[in-house]
Design a binder for these strands. Structure first.
Lengths: 193, 193
DNA sequence: AAAGATACGGACCCCGGGTCCGTTTTTCAA
DNA sequence: TTGAAAAACGGACCCGGGGTCCGTATCTTT
């Protein structure tokens, strides 16, 4: 047993930081102008505390992201159709992509901040592998689907945070239109052969 | 006439920097550990010179990238099939994607460095818009293709530098296999309906 | 050849991520 | 209840890298 329950103040501060950061990311324009010191200040906490709780900037971003993602993850793993595991693949694949797109739209700044951290992100954040695994297995069940692994990567790439930011942000494409476009793209891919 | 021809030493130094940086990016492991000071030193030049010539880090990266891309650009704009403009779209689209993939494979570090600069890159680097324009017009000529603009974005996303880095680098997928996978993906998308 | 224009280069500035350590709070056993 | 050990606090501090500045060197032009 290497688990020791954290001290009360530590838990409280961790929570405060999470909430403050969450709020700040929602407010700010671009995520890289949001400094660790800012977040610490907003949470009423010292920088040391922040780094002790999350290790580094990436750690904090990941924790935030993970918390936000949790409901989606649950819906995908144990929820009802069209997201849950009981859905037939031709229906589930677009549903997964749509859920991911909506998630990125709802968490633009955060996803952006996380995906542009260090080299070969977001491919080393745990959730990517999870998404890839789920999508891949769904694709594998589609008759005539070759290279489901690569296809999963390629489809996921269509929801990259910076692409979403460009389309929804800079070009002003509305949410529903973007969802429709992605759905159309996925549908075309799925109906092939 | 705002054009004035540059002084001889300026031109020489610019060239030296370009060559030094090019060599260094080929050699180094990950691009973010390659500092401006390093490049200046390798080129036998002061930091000031480097920044005067290229503005900032991104400027240098762009100049390098542009120089490397030039031949490809030419092949696409005025070359013979399957890359050139005379190619029928169903053949040209995969050819374009393959050329882009090969380019990224041949310039992994550089592409990586450029794509992870600042927020919403690489979508603000000029060459992206160019690729997107070319691919989009090719797709528009495919019968039954809806939303060619989005499709172009999505297909381009499948060649993102960090994805290529993960597949070719971390997972060790060989060049030919990766090309085949991308080709298969594109083919499936194109033959739909 | 000499002066005006342009470029050089490295010391210097700034800012943000990350660390350190003296102080404070919590925990827990006696 | 208490006191001492363990854990957390927080902000001054460090460091490295991008970018600037300006006195000096080089080129260009007449």
């Amino acid at each position: 047993m290497t688990e020791r329950k954290p001290r009360k103040d530590a838990a409280r501060n961790r929570q405060a930081v999470l909430e403050a950061a969450d709020a700040l990311f929602g407010r700010c324009e671009s995520p890289e102008e949001l400094t660790m010191a800012d977040i610490a200040a907003a949470a009423g906490v010292g920088k040391g505390t922040l780094f002790r709780a999350f290790g580094d900037r990436t750690g904090l971003l990941r924790a935030l992201y993970e918390a936000r993602l949790e409901p989606v993850r649950e819906a995908v793993e144990t929820g009802p159709p069209p997201l849950g595991p009981a859905t037939p693949p031709r229906e589930r694949v677009p549903a997964l992509l749509d859920a991911l797109l909506c998630f990125k739209l709802d968490n633009r700044r955060l996803a952006l901040a996380l995906e542009e951290t260090g080299s070969s992100s977001p491919y080393q954040a745990g959730h990517y592998d999870w998404w890839h695994g789920v999508l891949r297995s769904a694709l594998e069940e589609v008759p005539g689907m070759a290279d489901a692994g690569f296809a999963a990567h390629a489809l996921l790439a269509a929801t990259r945070a910076d692409l979403v930011e460009r389309l929804a942000g800079r070009e002003g494409v509305e949410r529903e239109r973007l969802r429709a476009q992605l759905a159309g793209y996925a549908a075309r891919f799925l109906t092939a052969r």
